[in-house]
Design a protein around this nucleic acid. Structure first.
Lengths: 355, 355
DNA sequence: CGTTCCTCCGGAAACGTTTACATATTTGCC
DNA sequence: GGCAAATATGTAAACGTTTCCGGAGGAACG
């Protein structure tokens, strides 16, 4: 492990010049720059990050905070890894590295974040699983730490955010269900206080009203994003007196459990009940394949990365043109799971009575 | 953001004493230690990591290297997050943090690792997706960087490793298949040069021989760990003249694709063909539920963390008691997917001819 | 009372960089 | 040729910690 001092001596230069050459400063002679960088490559010199960080007051990495033990963003784990790629491509050009900052299960998310910020762990932070009112965003806001959130809080704190278009999903799926004759539509929302549940339900309510229908509270199910709860959801739906004929799944992890729960009771998804859900690598291989909302995860990541860069003084190309707040679009992928048109007056209960 | 200097002044102490108090050095008076720590909490002082790293020559974090864009360890993403928890519980007691070191897709894994090591990114490293001969482990070995691998190389380089018991999986599933009358057994191994494929096949060959059978090369399928390849696998299997009656899936991501591919051809998994696979949160909710190998991911993580700690001079409790090399046990969870007993002489081809 | 040994604390030197400032050399211009 | 400007390099001071060394004060001991 060679240091800048040794490299300088080896080149008969001062460490100052070497440093400038390594960092592509303009005031160093082009020829010496070449010579230095050449030697650095040969001897395997890489600036020590601690020294550099200390002096520059920045670490050169960006942290994506995640809490282990939970399903990461509540939308399955492949989701987040897709986004990581995009973030990295956005950061790579600026010499920033992306690291996942893993909050241990038993730790409080807020105090963990505070500790990391105080330590100077990263130059910018990306938060996900945003709650309606999230102490983490107020904290970062007040302390002027550059950050972006994947998901939005209830009240806008002026920070940048991106969020999947949950309102759009609500509208589109309800329109689609209603157009096919469905009236009783089961909806799912996360059981915790993440904001997306409210956003989804608000839009769903409006969409129903536009069709002269109403959200019935008994058809709103609060779930954890995992297979087990999907299974329980099936049981709950089937135990209702007036069964819904359609169901929307807010999270891809629910699908398989729901399918199994329905199938065990002799209800065939896609035939006896319509299902729309969220995309995952598996959607197309389910039987029936899932009609679902797909999003461009890589693009989402790139957008996140760029929004974060824009909030970091050093990297903001132009004037700090205000915070980014963008709803990320989704595309409906047609599968077999909602291929079910109801004649008026037909309910799931009557259909299944005569199989 | 308060520094140690300000804190010292506020307490009328030298920064030396404050530092010692913060770090629980024994030579500081118990009373002053209390006073210092109290004030630190109140004023929100946390030692700056860059300064500390620079002086101590260590960063206080441990990196788990992963390559985005790939299925992380080739065994699905939930796998790795389960392991993270365990690692963290092992590290937490020693004040170490776990960070995921994300190698961008377009980067070469080896040079990325070298860069990170030279930078002094972490005090210890965990590697996964180990190749038969992996330049990363030789590099870390030669440079005396503390590390552990999840997976083993072909030739032991003397480092610590843990690895899931792929040999055991091979033996157990073949024994089980054969006991139920299967003779033609399809096996899957990763298409790349990860070592586990060889380990698995060696053990499978031996297990077959023990039953007086042989591995036929046409029944060994090299696959990528994703649903698409599972689907293709089904097609390949069905296109064989003498069809296998059983199949082992080395990766959980294959299952759903295989199921779909079989079902489309009218072959019912669990009824017409036996399937054993790897556990995932979904195994139990598949139809038929998957007979699969489950492992204690949290425990695996803890073991990994402890093995790493043992290889770090500062944390090695006792004498450096040599490298850990442990095969991690798996448990067979019985599902519905291999609930199929063949009468002698019955092959899949003849069975499906008369449905 | 003098010596030795603890206990506790402060001064100051590191750790490896970057950068403000100064300095030396060359260039351009009248 | 003299002077200003431009160019290229060196010197040294930071960044925030930790830790070596030394010293003050008190206790223990002869």
């Amino acid at each position: 492990m060679i240091g800048i001092r040794a490299l300088a001596k080896h080149l008969n230069l001062s460490i100052a010049t070497v440093s400038r050459a390594i960092n592509d400063h303009p005031e160093v002679n082009a020829k010496t720059r070449q010579r230095v960088q050449q030697a650095a490559r040969e001897l395997g010199y890489v600036p020590n990050q601690s020294g550099r960080s200390l002096r520059r007051g920045e670490t050169g990495n960006v942290a994506f905070m995640m809490e282990t033990g939970h399903e990461i963003t509540g939308t399955g784990d492949t989701f987040i890894l897709g986004v990581f790629n995009g973030i990295q491509t956005a950061l790579a050009d600026h010499g920033l590295d992306l690291v996942a900052m893993l909050c241990p299960r038993h730790d409080d998310a807020e105090s963990f974040l505070k500790r990391m910020v105080a330590r100077g762990f990263a130059d910018g932070i990306i938060l996900s699983s945003i709650k309606r009112v999230d102490p983490r965003v107020s904290f970062l806001s007040e302390n002027k730490v550059p950050f972006v959130t994947l998901g939005r809080t209830n009240a806008d704190m002026g920070q940048s955010w991106l969020d999947s278009d949950f309102a759009g999903m609500a509208r589109q799926s309800i329109d689609r269900f209603v157009a096919r004759g469905h009236r009783r539509i089961a909806l799912t929302v996360p059981g915790d206080t993440t904001n997306l549940g409210d956003i989804f339900l608000d839009a769903a309510g409006e969409a129903m009203q536009a069709h002269g229908l109403e959200l019935s509270p008994e058809l709103i199910f609060r779930i954890e994003p995992n297979e087990e709860d999907g299974y329980r959801l099936a049981k709950s739906i089937l135990s209702l007196a007036d069964r819904p004929t359609a169901v929307f799944l807010i999270n891809p992890s629910l699908t398989l459990g729901l399918y199994r729960g329905l199938t065990e009771a002799g209800i065939r998804p896609g035939k006896d009940i319509a299902v729309i859900g969220r995309d995952s690598p598996q959607s197309a291989f389910l039987t029936p394949s899932l009609t679902c909302f797909r999003e461009d995860l890589d693009g989402l990541g790139v957008a996140l990365g760029e929004a974060l860069l824009a909030s970091m003084p050093k990297y903001a190309r132009h004037a700090p043109n205000g915070a980014v707040s963008k709803v990320w679009p989704l595309e409906l992928v047609e599968g077999e799971s909602d291929d079910l048109v109801l004649a008026p007056g037909i309910s799931l209960a009557t259909r299944t009575r005569s199989p």
